[in-house]
Simulated assay, not measured.
Amino acid sequence: MTTLQLKNIVKRYKSQTVLDDLSLDVADGERLVLFGPSGAGKTVLLRLVAGVIDPDEGRVLIGGEDMTEVDAEHRGVGMAFQNFALFPHMSAFDNIASALTSRKSSKESIAAGVQKVAKLLKIDHVLSHHPKALSNGQKQRTALARALVGSPPLLLLDDPLRNVDAKLRFEMRLELPRLLASEGATVVYVTQDYKEAMALGDRIAVMSQGSIHQIGTPGDIYNAPADIEIARLFGDPTINLLDVVPQRGPDGAFVELSNVRFRLPNFGAEIVGKSCVLGLRPETIAFTEASALGAIPVTVEAETPLNEKTVTLTLTARGREILVSRPAGTPGPVAGPAHIAVNGRAALLFDKESGRLMRPAELTSKRNGEAA
């Protein structure tokens, strides 16, 4: 059983704290994605788990054993570095095979293992080439193949698809989960691409400034982001965010959009009068007829086709921008007056001051009201 436990990890470089009292548990066979902006500390964390660098404080446990003081080569970890780290004097074949060669595997098993993973990653035709003759995408896939070929129980992947072309990246999002599941490895995968995180992770740990701000399933992160910044990071087009102060009505709390009451069925009187930010995912909004119950009048400003979907920019009566996303080919207005319907149960509320996601039990009652 290969689990990974990080306990109160601290890593500093001079006066800068890169990892700040970080703790994390990864289950046996789990695929955990570390997601966050550049500089969040994701790569430093991977290198620390691999044993390339040491923590200033805290412990690293692999399979229940304390590996904090154990050298990298004795940790049983496979890692694909973001910067390739290929041996320039060796062919792609020999670079990939190095993990098996170090175990003194037979020539036949080495050849079979290299061919299998190289074919999957579509680099079997360049195995005889040295790194200088490879494209960046081929170098990245060679580094990934080297990490995979030895079937390590713990696999660390540092944005391994960053330099591959869009078509292969899409294909690998489908193929990698199958491969990793078949290997049974425990995987920690770093990416800055939210779609990749959603596709590859059993869970996602969202990092920022050396700390984990939220961890959960892809559905948890998308549907209940811990704060506004996380909500912005997940979704394309980005989430609509409107400053509101909910009011009290006979059938519950509401806000006004274009002078139309928009109910918030997930919330009660506890949010009334509180300064909030209303979050609406563009795909939870649809164009509707003016006669429909709760139809909200808007003005269509622009429409952008994006292959599989069409994104429309609309304005409320107060000039607030609302993006509406619908599947490509679905009819919709292209300019002028229109009406939208919003799924109130999918609406998110954030505290305006802290930016944190608001839940009914956490709220206190205040007075006042404002139309959106």
Rank of each mutant, 00 (worst) to 15 (best):
M1W: 10
T2R: 12
T3Q: 14
L4C: 15
N8S: 15
N8L: 09
S15Q: 15
T17R: 15
V18W: 04
L19V: 05
D20I: 02
D25M: 12
V26N: 06
V26F: 10
G29A: 05
P37H: 13
T43A: 01
L45G: 03
G51Q: 02
P55H: 08
E57N: 15
G64S: 07
E65P: 02
M67Q: 15
T68I: 11
A72C: 11
E73C: 12
G76A: 08
V77K: 12
L86G: 02
F87E: 00
H89E: 04
A92C: 08
F93E: 01
A97E: 01
S98L: 10
S102E: 09
K104T: 06
K104Y: 10
S109G: 03
A112M: 09
K116Q: 14
V126A: 04
H130E: 05
A133R: 11
A143C: 08
A147K: 01
L148E: 01
V149P: 03
P152S: 08
P152I: 06
D159V: 05
V164T: 05
D165P: 03
L168K: 01
G184K: 07
Q192P: 04
D193Y: 15
Y194E: 07
G201S: 04
R203A: 01
M207T: 06
I212G: 00
I212E: 02
I215W: 09
G216M: 08
P218F: 12
D220W: 14
Y222S: 04
A224I: 05
P225A: 05
A226K: 14
A231I: 03
A231E: 00
L233W: 09
F234W: 10
D236Q: 14
P237N: 06
L242F: 13
V244F: 12
V245R: 13
Q247F: 07
F254K: 08
S258A: 14
S258V: 08
V260Q: 14
V260E: 05
R261I: 08
L264G: 03
N266Y: 11
G268Q: 09
I271Y: 02
V272A: 11
K274I: 08
C276P: 00
L280S: 02
I285T: 05
E289V: 09
L293W: 10
V311T: 13
T312H: 06
L313C: 06
T316W: 02
R320A: 13
I322H: 01
G329Q: 05
G329K: 09
T330E: 10
T330F: 07
G332T: 00
G332F: 04
V334C: 15
P337V: 06
I340L: 03
G344V: 01
G344R: 00
A346S: 12
A347H: 04
A347Y: 03
M358S: 08
R359C: 12
T364M: 11
S365E: 11
R367L: 12
R367D: 13
G369H: 11
E370T: 12
E370Y: 15
A371V: 13
A372G: 15
